[in-house]
Amino acid sequence: MTEELTEARRAIFSGSTFEEQIGYARAVVDGDWVHVSGTTGFDYATMTISDDVVEQAEQSLRNVGTALTEAGCTFADVVRVRYLLPDRADFEPCWPTLRRCFGEIRPAATMLVCGLSDPRMRFEIEVYARLRRAVAM
């Protein structure tokens, strides 16, 4: 669900209960930029999350992909990625999943080891994308 904020800025919501409880949007389109909030491996339809870090990474990417599509872009438009994990040992098992998504795109990326808001969360991703607009001739 998208909510218009201004002509150049709009919010995209996933239906996650966290968005309403905390007060944020899954993504914000601001001009040509798409800012996707930190996104974990929750399945928003059921509000469940796998115990497996790779499955969490895969679901996180599905969640991000949905937001990007609603914003009018794809993973090919991603220019910056931040990975957040409570345990650095969990990062390497996710590499094949991340490479399948970003291997050809090669966005700038950072991985941070930090606490996440729910102990079930083992992987979180935040992305920035730039909309590619057709040039009028």
Rank of each mutant, 00 (worst) to 15 (best):
Asp52Arg: 00
Glu70Val: 00
Cys101Arg: 15
Gly41Asn: 04
Gly72Arg: 05
Ala67Trp: 10
Asn63Gly: 09
Ser37Lys: 05
Pro93Lys: 12
Val34Phe: 01
Thr66Trp: 04
Asp90Gln: 03
Ser60Gln: 09
Val78Gly: 03
Ser37Met: 15
Val81Met: 01
Val54Glu: 15
Arg80Ser: 12
Cys73Asn: 07
Leu84Cys: 09
Val81Ala: 11
Ala76Cys: 03
Val81Thr: 09
Pro86Gly: 14
Gln56Glu: 11
Gln59Asp: 02
Ala67Ile: 05
Glu58Cys: 07
Val54Trp: 00
Leu84Thr: 12
Leu85Met: 15
Val64Gly: 06
Ile49His: 00
Val36Tyr: 09
Asp77Thr: 08
Leu98Ser: 13
Gln56His: 07
Ala67Pro: 11
Asp90Phe: 00
Asp32Ser: 14
Asp87Gln: 03
Thr48Trp: 10
Arg88Glu: 00
Ser60Asp: 10
Thr66Asp: 03
Val79Lys: 10
Val53Gly: 09
Asp32Ile: 04
Leu85Trp: 06
Ser50Cys: 03
Thr66Ser: 04
Asp30Asn: 15
Ala71Tyr: 07
Phe42Trp: 04
Gly38Leu: 07
Ile49Ala: 11
Leu85Glu: 10
Asp90Arg: 11
Gln56Thr: 05
Ile49Glu: 05
Cys94Ala: 15
Thr69Pro: 01
Cys73Gln: 04
Tyr44Leu: 14
Ala71Cys: 08
Leu85Pro: 05
Glu92Phe: 05
Glu92Met: 13
Trp95Gly: 06
Thr97Met: 12
Val36Ile: 14
Phe42Tyr: 15
Leu98Val: 13
Trp95Asp: 10
Val34Gly: 03
Arg62Gly: 07
Leu98Gln: 14
Val78Glu: 08
Asp77Glu: 10
Ser60Leu: 02
Asp32Thr: 14
Pro86Val: 12
Asp30Glu: 08
Thr46Leu: 06
Trp95Leu: 14
Pro96Glu: 14
Ser50Pro: 12
Thr48Ile: 01
Ala45Glu: 12
Arg88His: 12
Gly31Tyr: 13
Pro86Trp: 12
Arg82Leu: 11
Ala57Thr: 11
Asp43Leu: 10
Gly72Asp: 02
Glu70Leu: 02
Leu84Gly: 07
Leu84Ser: 12
Trp95Asn: 13
Val78Ile: 02
Asp51Cys: 05
Ala71Thr: 04
Pro96Ala: 14
Gln59Leu: 12
Thr74Leu: 04
